[in-house]
Design a protein around this nucleic acid. Structure first.
Lengths: 243, 243
DNA sequence: ACTGATAAAACTGTATGCAGTTTTATCAGT
DNA sequence: ACTGATAAAACTGCATACAGTTTTATCAGT
């Protein structure tokens, strides 16, 4: 599987790896269903520029490429359509959408606002247990920074942000944040490959955690907003250089 | 098609109408593909409570219900999953996601935050034309309040809020707001039947409009937040009485 | 050569079939 | 009666097949 996209995964930490001989345990990484794998793979190819905007994604070619039938390909394309990464019209091939500058910025801006809200609400609503867990995990993550394994830190990072979303104690907000984050995932994946980003990220997290532990809602909100805004900047630069 | 959901469309304005005798021209309304129709039909059934949270959506039953094969059903379910209306896990039936009491409050809170953000950004970013249009429409709506036709005011109200969402000049925020609003729609509908709600709504709009015209972002944000929060209160009361 | 009609190829939309997984029902052992 | 094992039924994931639509290639008429 993933014949042409394979190299994308070699060091990207999505951990798909489909050596048939190996049982698909892989701790918690869970490769997921065929369709999920394809969604991620294609999403990555789109945002990394391997597939250029306007490029046709015909089902048969993709099926051949991923060595599956057209059925899962169709489902993957539909999901990518819902994610806004590909355009779809009846009886026409799906085409790679131009995730152009403007919309990317919009998504990051929205993400920043959402994270800000979650952090603010977390500062007000997190239980003692949640605060303790947040602090504990945050401290632990320092070691990951030292180790410099981007892959591990990315996994922790996801966990950290999910804690913020859940800490707001608002299911719908959690859903909106998760959803937006999922859409930005492919853009963010490339992020941690940048030098020095890890320790900066940790410092930013620290500001957020400290504010939340102090129940300082306003500071937590702005800190979280800024954290995303920074990633946004770095990411748009990346997007600009690839085009 | 749409055997059980048919009545939903009779007066709902989604304009699907599937009388087979009629050619599917329908100007620009475009019924769309089978899958699109199903997505909308199922989404409506979920949101209107015809399908209750936790209910299993097994593919075979749906296929029978809509008189199609499982393939389009699967694609519809995948899209609904991406929309967040149904939950999906590998090898399990899709299930209708929760829209219960607690979640309802969460949705209103999230909606308030989103409206607040949109109003704030609108105050900063609306073009002169947008501001003028907003003011003009707002003034016109006063007559609707006088007439007291809740239905007409509701239509205007939707328009007003959409202006706010668009005024933020952020596609993704527009999407999140629209999506959340759509989910709350059924709960909000009963709102305007409450006595005195119309003129109160107008007054609240007025505060928002004034702030936006003055480019007073902070005031616009809080005014919009409060506007939704008020509707939320009235609505949760309603929700309590119906259950 | 150039346009327009026409046929072939390519491709999407949907149906159906099979393999593997999960759920449900049945029944022996206690 | 009640638990746990086991077999049957139900259902999902994926593959394949076919019908209908769109695109491309070909060729007659100018």
């Amino acid at each position: 599987m993933l014949p042409s996209a394979g190299h994308l995964y070699a060091g990207s930490g999505t951990g798909i790896e489909t050596t048939v001989t190996q049982p698909k345990q892989r701790t918690i990484i869970r490769a997921g269903t065929t369709v999920e794998q394809m969604v991620r793979a294609i999403a990555d190819m789109i945002v990394t520029g391997v597939m250029v905007p306007g490029e046709r994604l015909d089902e048969l070619s993709l099926a051949a490429r991923f060595e599956v039938s057209r059925t899962p390909v169709r489902e993957a394309l539909r999901e990518l359509g819902a994610m806004g990464l590909v355009g779809r019209e009846p009886n026409r091939s799906a085409i790679v959408k131009n995730v152009e500058e403007a919309h990317l910025r919009a998504m990051f801006e929205a993400m920043a606002e959402l994270e800000g809200i979650c952090a603010r609400l977390s500062a007000m609503r997190m239980t003692a247990d949640e605060r303790n867990a947040l602090e504990r995990e945050h401290r632990t993550s320092m070691q990951l920074v030292g180790a410099g394994v981007a892959e591990d830190y990315a996994a922790y990072n996801t966990d950290f942000h999910n804690r913020l979303y859940r800490g707001a104690h608002n299911d719908h907000l959690l859903e909106l944040a998760t959803q937006t984050r999922a859409r930005l995932a492919p853009f963010r994946r490339a992020q941690f490959r940048l030098a020095g980003r890890l320790s900066k990220s940790y410092a930013e997290h620290d500001r957020i955690v400290t504010a939340i532990l102090r129940a300082d809602a306003a500071t937590a909100g702005t800190a979280a907003y800024d954290h995303v805004a920074i990633v946004s900047d770095a990411s748009t630069i990346f997007a600009a250089t690839r085009g």
